[in-house]
Design a protein around this nucleic acid. Structure first.
Lengths: 230, 230
DNA sequence: CGCGTCTTTGAGAAACATCAACAGCGGTGG
DNA sequence: CCACCGCTGTTGATGTTTCTCAAAGACGCG
């Protein structure tokens, strides 16, 4: 795993150098397209006609797919800078709902698919789609070839990198999703995710504050676990 | 699982109605871009500058990624009608080599990324990329939530659908990849793939002719296994 | 025909899931 | 303000699946 170089898949790629998250102020010029969404709100459902593509400006979204028998896979978490809702054959292929109050810039599907219109925007959406493909490939390795502790540690590494606040020696970040969301994202059960958290906590690699706040105490060790060097 | 409706991920989506595989003859008009590739040949490597995007006309390609410690994931198999080599940040993110002598139409990366040039081609490549995203999401469910037998059965279902030849009551197709390729694609071990083949064979759902030729004896049952109804 | 590689099978071990019970926390209503 | 309720998270005991290690068999190629 090459954090920062080749992106891992929390949701979209995390090539910070390339991705240009839209700031709230920057988005102001497109205000008529900026939508605010409360937790629990659904942006779209699997199978629906895809009218829009969404750029996440703030908050956190969750993309999910479900099998007939109820087994669920969290496809991605949508953080600021991510683009969600890429259509395939004119339809959405996941559900999308809001975990943390979010602001999104709404683009018509044609902004990507039509050859007319804002060329710069089209290019930006296309690059987001291409980075998404690459990031999903990384996640294949996660689901197909990594152990439970490697998956959880990788997940925490990525979040730490993307949304962690620097506490001097440590890094802290919020987990807007439940343990079962994490489990369904990583192809595990809630219990296994819990146990792995406990292990990391007992070995002082991380600390938990209020269950949904992670403090990374030993970033090196966390990365080592993520890479299977432990 | 909705075979044919929502595509599963052998490699790209299999919405046959939408995808338009280029026939060898149809590709003749683009002859100067048609390349023939022998088994073992590498089209590109992970990390290389991405110059081209490839449309598979015939044969079979294999896309792989490898972790530092050697663990491998087969990302996809490239069958006729598939598009491989989507760049991300200007680079390839998988290795790609040839399993069965192939013919590919080579497009410059700019055919997708530039706003100038053949608009129809650009749209075709874009749609392929979007279908790829959707198909990869399906594969997430495979890797994250399905059992070994469900994975193998799903895999065989898809191949049967995409490249099977109708034998009247049965369907037959060739497996150009090794058992360990299948294992690395499905996130399993070779042994587990073998044992699952044996199970399916012993329950007369499939028959094997020469290890690499599959005959589907009971398509309904195969689908049932794939969907976990068994 | 012999050799290397791939596939298959078996036995045992490990990882993870499942089932069950308990704890923590927030919210609500008495 | 406190007690209760429900939901989420945690921990434990047990079970199942899949992996690992090992060996034998099949197949293709020189």
């Amino acid at each position: 795993m090459q954090l920062g170089a080749t992106a891992m898949y929390v949701t979209r790629p995390n090539d910070h150098l390339e991705r240009q998250p839209i700031s709230e102020s920057g988005a102001a010029s497109r205000m008529r397209h900026l939508h605010r969404l409360q937790p629990g709100k659904h942006l779209f459902h699997e199978g629906q006609d895809a009218r829009n593509i969404y750029e996440v400006v703030s908050g956190v979204l969750r993309l999910t797919r479900v099998l007939e028998d109820g087994r669920r896979q969290v496809i991605a978490f949508g953080y600021p800078g991510d683009v969600v809702g890429f259509p395939s054959d004119g339809r959405y292929h996941t559900d999308c709902d809001v975990l943390r109050a979010a602001a999104v810039v709404v683009h018509n599907r044609s902004a990507l698919e039509s050859n007319k219109g804002d060329a710069a925007l089209r290019t930006r959406l296309l690059q987001a789609a291409l980075r998404e493909i690459s990031a999903m490939q990384d996640h294949f390795l996660m689901l197909g070839r990594k152990s439970a502790s490697e998956r959880v540690a990788s997940f925490l590494c990525i979040l730490s990198e993307r949304v962690g606040t620097d506490l001097g020696q440590f890094t802290q970040f919020d987990l807007p999703m439940s343990r079962s969301d994490i489990a369904d994202f990583l192809g595990l059960t809630t219990e296994t995710v819990c146990r792995t958290f406990t292990q990391l906590r007992k070995s002082n690699v991380i600390a938990l504050d209020r269950v949904h706040t992670v403090i990374v105490l030993k970033p090196r060790d966390l990365l080592a676990v993520a890479e299977g060097d432990i």
